[in-house]
Nucleic acid binder design. Sequence first.
RNA 1: CCGCCCUUAGCUCAGACUGGUAGAGCAGUCGACUGUAGAUCGACUUGUCCCCCGUUCAAAUCGGGGAGGGCGGACCA
Length: 326
Amino acid sequence: MDAYELITRNAEEVVTDEEVEELAEDPEGKRVYVGYEPSGVLHIGHMLTANKLIDLQEAGMEVVILLADVHAYLNGKGTFEEIEATAEKMRKQFLAYGLDDEKTEFVYGSDYQLDDDYALDLHKLELDTTLNRAQRAMAEIQGDETAKVSHVVYPLMQALDIEYLDLDLAVGGLDQRKVHMLMREELPEIGYDARPCLHTPILADLGTGEGKMSSSSGVTISMEDSTEDIEEKVNSAFCPPTRDPEGDLENPVLEIFQYHIFPRFETVVVERPDEYGGNLEYDDYEALADDLESGELHPADAKGALATYLDKLVAPGREKLRELEQ
RNA sequence: CCGCCCUUAGCUCAGACUGGUAGAGCAGUCGACUGUAGAUCGACUUGUCCCCCGUUCAAAUCGGGGAGGGCGGACCA
């Protein structure tokens, strides 16, 4: 797999393709980031962007993880002390998950976001951005809450972070799209370069297969889950024997194979009783999805394998959490 | 500062006028059927009715006070 392919695989959107192609020509030492509001426990959504970061490290890039404590504060997630504690837990789980300690730089937002020059640049952005625009950028992150002033400052800081962390590429879920577009428009207005960005998809709800509605309600897999929890959640997942379920629905089991399992494992072995034809082995996602579609692979067997591999991904983080509690 | 509206199950809300031990839809849980899930049947669960004080035999409901949330306040029409 060449660098460009590795950098862009499984991305839902690349902005712009030309700019990323240029990065891919010499990825060594280029800086990329994802910003996370600290939460004590890593979940499957964090893991999805982390997978992309691992790809980028493999391509030779330097990864910056922003532990966005100030953002969390602005989003009403608690006191700084509380946020700090969860951020540290989060950092350790990312390392346990498989990010390279040598090539990963963890930065707290509060390390630089309270400096004078940052604050002045932020005000410059405020002066240049309409309330309406900032609020729209924030809508996905904010949910149903009534907008506070802190909520409109939030995306402006995200834009500014990309300059202050000296990045070459910004990564995020598709829910970050409007924030990144704001960044691309506004950074040049205050004299900085717009950066390219890369968006991972938002996977469908595991329980219902309903897509595109970011985080919120449904079943989620996290580092807190025991092996049994994972088996149970995966077993109760929506999984018709097809790649394209009726209507707007997606097949979340296939999605997890595509975005979480195959990027991290060379081969996937589906254990199957002789009664149903014995074990199956796959080297890539397409082969597995084809077999599910054709009926060669039964959803129940696919789920068994999915739970096994998901558990392998979660196990180190789960272990780390256990250590931290002692 | 002033005015109006809202607060009841996890969610959206009914019930308040006319006091009598709290309801619906969705969600959730459990069975049946499928070698998964869903769909479909069948059953089940769910409460600080925002808080305090008062009236009353009895308050989600009436009265007073408070909290939280939403919307509004010029001119023009």
